[in-house]
Every structure is written in structure tokens, then in C-alpha cells.
Design a binder for these strands. Structure first.
Lengths: 191, 191
DNA sequence: GCTTACATGTAATTGGTTACATGATTTC
DNA sequence: GAAATCATGTAACCAATTACATGTAAGC
């Protein structure tokens, strides 16, 4: 059982879905927690079904093949809930952006500024999409901690917070770069 | 040329290092931008040396084998600077923690609270380590945007901001869970 | 004398991406 | 009639982790 397996179980726990539906969600860049391609998802779903954690009901699909709608079995639900509150492995972040930022001193201040400005733009587009997605969640007063929506909302909130923090960081860095470009030697502002 | 290659070039750009030194930094969980194991690093360094992007000077090491100290060549420096300010690929975040949070409704509110509290503790330990690392950077007034330290400091700041945002999120979620546990139905606080 | 740190490498396996393949139905 | 969407699958390749292997020097 790898992490992808649990990502799939977690997706099917909210409602039964076809492999196609799951793969559409998992390639979307927003509201993400885990990403995967369909070429990874379909074989994995077959393995989970073989292991008895999920069950497929074949429905007549619009595609060339029959469509399989998967649902969690009781075994799968148990496996998911046991996994869910065990402590997660320490995350090993890999950020190509930060890697590039570290080497930005090799280019001109103008190009560095353009780089960060472009990143800021990307983050703000994502912020807008996230704010739109807010409507997916039920009215506040209907949510409580034993409701699936509650924790889905919490993960959405996490994404929002991080995106806002990223934008603030971009603005800070842009102002620092601007100060230096103007040839006014100033000390770095602590926040 | 994969991303790891540029991570290695970026590390060697600040100062020449042995494979061992680079691998020590890249397995550390703090101040990270990219992580890798030594088993991935050593072969990659050999490939970069063969391609002429870095150069090794063999020094007598303390280990059973000779130690190789790698430094960027002018070709390697150019390759790094060209790569550095080209737009990075959109990040595909994978968070086992968020994946687990989404399925926390399957457990009791008490266990969910314990889970988040443990995460908060992890983040605050990381915050403490980050704050200690602040001293690695030169005095503020010595840094400007053409100095390697300046952008290294910026990546450190990014890590700090994200960690603080994570702690704030944990506190918010804990307070939400607490409200619901006390059986006082309240609406979710927007922030 | 035992453990830890230094120091580099290979092999086997798992995880993940990109490309190939197929074909019906719906929309323009 | 052309293009996009639905829908599932395999194959080849690249990236990353875990385990195997070796051996010296320093500190306890």
C-alpha cells in the first residue's frame, strides 16, 4: 500500500467514482493534496479492487470500454480510517521555484524582478481560483467535525493560507529588489 | 539535464564542495529547496563532471576512497544562470498530511485533535530551527541583490513564512475542533 | 574495543511521467 | 465531417528510495 492507494481510497470515500472522474480531479492544479496521471490511477484501482478494498460496478459507458464505478468496501473504509490518523511522514519539499530563486543572483536585477513578478502573477491566479472554489462547500453552519465536508474545507483553507503567504512573500521580495535597483542602499527589512 | 542536476550546480555555485557535503545538506529537513539521497547524488555528480559542467579535484580524504571536491566550470555557471531565470514548471504539491486531514472525519474528534496537535508541534520545532539558522546569513546591510546571500536569505524567509502560516492554520483548526467537541454548535469562523 | 562520522559507490525496487493505442458519443 | 470529450488500458522510460558494500579515522 503506497500513498497513492490511500489518495484513491480518500477520493472514493466521499462518493463512488469512475477512474476517469478520479483522474480528472487528480490532475487539476487546484485544491490538490495529491496528483497523479491516469496511467498510474487505472492500474492502481485494479489492484485495490483485487485486494478487496474497493468494488467496481460495471456501467455502460460512453467510451469504447465499459465504465467501472468504484466504491469503498467496508475493508477499504477501515484501512483508510486506520491510515488517516497515524502520523504522516515528514515532508520533503521540492520546489523548483525556490531552487531558481537561490540562483537568481547570477542574472541581472531586472530579470530577477521579472521572474518574481511572474511568480506573483501565478500565485494570484491560483488565489482567484481557490476563492471561486469556496462555493463548493456547504453553508458554514451545516458543517461539523464529523462531516466529510468539514475537513475538506480545512484543506481548502490551508491552500488559501499558503497561497496568500506566497503572494505576501513575492511583494516583500519585489520591494527589496526595487530598493536595491534604485541604488539606494538600504538594509533588509525584517518582518 | 534534470532538476537534480541544477540543484547540484546551485549548491556548488556558492562554494566548491565534496559529494558528501552536498548530500548532507540535501538530506537535511530544514532550509530545503530540494532533497536527494547520496545514492542519487554521486552518480549525478559523475555525469555532470563527464559533461564538463563541473570539475573535480581529488584530495586525500578521511574515508576509504579519495575525496573529490567539485567546482563549477564556466560552462556549468552559464548553464545554471540560463536555467535560473526561466519560468519554473507549475508545482504539483503532494502532501500526505493534507491527504490524511481530508479523511480525519472517519476517526473520533479526540483523535483528530491529537493528530493536528502533533502536526502543530512538528511545525513549531521547524520554526525554532529556522530561527536559529537566521544567523547563517550575513548582516543585513551587507546584502544586496547581486550577492549570493541575498537570494539564499529570501528562500529562508519563504520557509519561515510558510511555517508560520502552517502553525496559524493548525491553531485555527484546533479551535474549530474544540468548539465542536464542546457540543456548542457554532458556525465556522471565516478568516 | 565500540560507536560515530567520513566518504563513495552499485543494485534492486518502487514511484511517476510521457507516449502509444483504441473507439464511441457529443458538440460545433 | 471535424474536433473535443469520455474512458480505459499498456509500454517505455526517467526519478527516487532502500538496501548492499567497503573501509578509515576520531572520539568515547
Amino acid at each position: 500500500m503506497n500513498t497513492l492507494s490511500y489518495a484513491l481510497l480518500g477520493a472514493l470515500a466521499s462518493r463512488p467514482q469512475t477512474g476517469w472522474e478520479v483522474s480528472q480531479h487528480m490532475k487539476a492544479p487546484i485544491a490538490y493534496m495529491w496528483a497523479a496521471q491516469h496511467s498510474q490511477i487505472y492500474p492502481e484501482l485494479n489492484r485495490l479492487a483485487e485486494a478487496g478494498l474497493i468494488e467496481a460496478t460495471v456501467i455502460r459507458g460512453r467510451g469504447p470500454r465499459d465504465t467501472k464505478r468504484y466504491a469503498l468496501t467496508s475493508v477499504g473504509l477501515l484501512a483508510l480510517s486506520v491510515w488517516a490518523d497515524s502520523p504522516p511522514a515528514v515532508e520533503v519539499p521540492k520546489s523548483e521555484m525556490l531552487l531558481k530563486v537561490r540562483s537568481l543572483w547570477l542574472t541581472s536585477p531586472e530579470r530577477a524582478t521579472a521572474f518574481i513578478a511572474a511568480q506573483r502573477e501565478q500565485f494570484s491566479v491560483r488565489l482567484a481560483t481557490l476563492i471561486e472554489e469556496r462555493q463548493q462547500f456547504a453553508r458554514d453552519d451545516l458543517m461539523s467535525s464529523d462531516h466529510p465536508e468539514f475537513f475538506a474545507f480545512a484543506t481548502w483553507q490551508y491552500g488559501l493560507d499558503r497561497t496568500r503567504a506566497a503572494i505576501t512573500w513575492c511583494d516583500w521580495l519585489l520591494s527589496q529588489l526595487n530598493d536595491h535597483q534604485l541604488d539606494r542602499p538600504t538594509s533588509i527589512t525584517r518582518r
